[in-house]
Design a protein around this nucleic acid. Structure first.
Lengths: 317, 317
DNA sequence: GGGTAAATGCTCATATTGAGCATATACAGG
DNA sequence: CCTGTATATGCTCAATATGAGCATTTACCC
């Protein structure tokens, strides 16, 4: 972003959360960012909207390609952020607006280019990875959040904070809801448990590393959206190679959603929905009986109203 | 919107699809718009983002209040449109961008103020109202769309157009999907069956009346989002009075979704989910046995992960 | 008192889920 | 060759959820 201009029109930026999944790790493409507070040295590919850009999305693709060399396939607009990180106008209190239109992109290949890098997205949200089954990290976060709730001024406010903690981090009957990524991040933000909100950098092992600007918020939005979308749209296949085993597919879904699934039920679901079809090939792979290679059945888009992976139960199997 | 300024920064507008439901009719709040092509005299409340606005949403609320006197309750960002209706720069081909951040708002009361007016939203999308059970309107649209598909240059393109028609207007196994409001509108747009895309105004009885700028597209986005959202979030209650009967609730849901529901199953669903609780009162109402008045059970938000009205079957009952 | 119009209560057959048990087929080692 | 170990696959079973109706109850209108 360049220096301030003598205009009342807002600056409009474009930013992309570019996601991929390699092995069992979900990734996000980051670029180095200078001139930021301590520890916030990574950001999402981003750049200002320019008059030469025919559309917002085309502008985004141009910036991403320029900064990372990556060309995008599936792209979807996420949200327009305009409330924070406002640009200072000149002197007064009232700054000019700096909007950011954030996008979600899904890609297959993961070859880093230029000085961009693929990072596990759980680097920024460690607590979103529930696959290990441990709960000590959540317990630690819960303790800090409880303290924050207690610190509220009125009993009413305490109750509201407590409800919100239960709702987002799971305590009431609802339990953990993997889609509420943004709500959890915003709660941690308000509770002052992330560096962006004034916390010390050493909360990072617990609440994750910060990003430049408000990019961590954008990434949280992207994860939540993706986790929701795989349930009713076959977007996972944007992340898979042309041929894959059901085990691989499951492991990618688990990596994205951060929870473990019941194996037999997962394959029943995939089969029942007609999301995939068998190929001739099988693969030796890791250990165990060879698995049949499958491919995405594109026709499913015409057959079902909402073809997706309505995540079955969690738990292993 | 004011005149062009000597800057390369884009203009950013804010627009709101403010929805309500009175009786059996879903409504949208419109304002008169001048300087538009024939027939496009209505638009959504909208105005430019100004430096004085602390946030996008606050700016939106300010504009709506100024133009319609309506104060907003539930507000949610929908989408940022930037590709069409671009502002001409000075002479050349390359114009400056004109972005519009569109919002969805839900309100209860429906008292029009200033020169704004509540309109049934099926005025703009008549074919989205499937409650009557007739299909002659869809047949007529299907015929025109079929002609458009036939007019494609290659067999491949014809097939793709046909698939898309089936997917959006329902033909294949999928049938009518009430959420695909935007996809249907965009298909009609591309097929040149709406005035905004060059069609004559007399297609309006079939494909609906146009709006100023790209506001009809925004409204379509809002309807689709709302129709989807009532299934997993209790947003309908934003449109209901504090106390209501299950019959009224059902009629509002039907009005929003444009389809009829099975009465007994609907009430079973609402009850099972714990979305409402009984009050002491009953009401005489129209004809028939008096109905118990219910109220929204706010606690459901803490109990269920996705409390909503997963629309049961259609058909009457 | 009879007819009409909801509002409610219940039943039943069919899917859809959540959890497991049991088998099949590789590979690594001894 | 035989024994684990690690997946991949097949199937079963109980608990729910969903789609369609039938039957009653309780007003209001003639």
């Amino acid at each position: 972003m360049s220096e301030a201009e003598p205009s009342t029109a807002p600056l409009v930026g474009l930013a992309a959360a570019i996601l991929a999944a390699t092995l069992d790790e979900p990734r996000v493409l980051t670029v180095p960012v200078a001139d930021q507070p301590e520890g916030r040295t990574e950001g999402l590919p981003a750049g200002p909207l320019e008059p030469a850009h025919p559309t917002l999305e085309r502008g985004l693709r141009a910036w991403v390609e320029r900064q990372t060399g990556q060309s995008l396939g599936y792209v979807e607009q996420l949200y327009t952020f305009g409330d924070r990180d406002r640009r200072r106008g000149g002197k007064g209190d009232v700054g000019l607006h700096a909007l950011s239109v954030a996008y979600l992109a899904l890609v297959r290949e993961a070859r880093p280019a230029a000085d961009s890098a693929w990072q596990s997205w759980y680097r920024y949200f460690p607590y979103e990875d529930r696959r290990a089954g441990r709960t000590d990290d959540l317990d630690a976060i819960a303790a800090r959040l409880a303290a924050w709730a207690e610190a509220a001024s009125s009993p009413e406010a305490r109750r509201r904070r407590g409800d919100r903690i239960g709702l987002t981090f799971g305590a009431a009957g609802s339990g953990w809801n993997e889609e509420r990524v943004l709500e959890r991040y915003e709660l941690l933000f308000e509770a002052g448990l992330v560096p962006e909100a004034g916390a010390d950098l050493d909360v990072s092992p617990l609440t994750g590393r910060p990003m430049a600007h408000d990019h961590r918020r954008m990434l949280a939005t992207a994860l939540g959206r993706l986790r929701g979308k795989i349930k009713y749209r076959p977007v996972v296949f944007e992340l898979m190679p042309p041929a894959f085993t059901l085990g691989q597919l499951q492991r990618v879904v688990e990596a994205l959603s951060g929870i473990l699934l019941h194996k037999q039920n997962f394959r029943r679901l995939v089969a029942h929905q007609g999301l995939v079809e068998e190929t001739e090939a099988v693969t030796a792979e890791t250990g165990g009986r060879p698995a049949r290679l499958m491919r995405f059945r594109r026709e499913v888009l015409l057959e079902r109203p909402a073809p997706g992976l309505r995540l079955p139960s969690n738990r292993t199997g």
